Computed example of a mutant assay.
Amino acid sequence: MHAANQARDRSDWALLFLRISGSLLLLAVHGLPKLLNMQAELTLIEDPLGLGPSVTLCLAIFAEVLCPLLIILGPFTRLATLPILAVLLVSLVLVHPEWSLGEGQFAWLLAILFTTLLIGGPGRIAFGKRLPF
Rank of each mutant, 00 (worst) to 15 (best):
P33T: 01
G52Y: 02
S54I: 12
S23C: 03
G74F: 03
C67V: 04
S54Q: 15
H30N: 11
A80K: 04
L57E: 02
L59K: 09
L42S: 01
L49W: 11
L42K: 00
G74E: 06
L66K: 03
P53S: 15
W13P: 00
L36I: 05
S54A: 14
A63Q: 06
V55Q: 08
L32P: 10
N37A: 09
L69H: 00
L88E: 02
L35E: 01
V90P: 04
L70P: 03
I20A: 11
L89I: 12
G52E: 01
L36V: 07
P75D: 09
L88F: 06
G74R: 08
A86Q: 10
T77Q: 04
S23A: 10
L16W: 09
L24V: 15
L66T: 10
L59S: 05
E46P: 07
L51P: 00
M38V: 14
A86S: 12
L85D: 01
L18D: 06
L25G: 13
S23W: 06
N37R: 10
Q39T: 13
L24F: 13
R19A: 04
T77D: 02
T43I: 09
G74A: 09
K34V: 03
V90A: 13
S21V: 13
I71Q: 01
L59F: 12
P83E: 05
L66R: 03
G52P: 08
T43G: 13
L88V: 10
E64K: 07
I45M: 08
G74W: 05
L73I: 13
R78N: 04
T77N: 04
L82A: 13
R78A: 07
S21N: 08
F62N: 06
G31Q: 05
T81H: 09
T43A: 15
K34P: 00
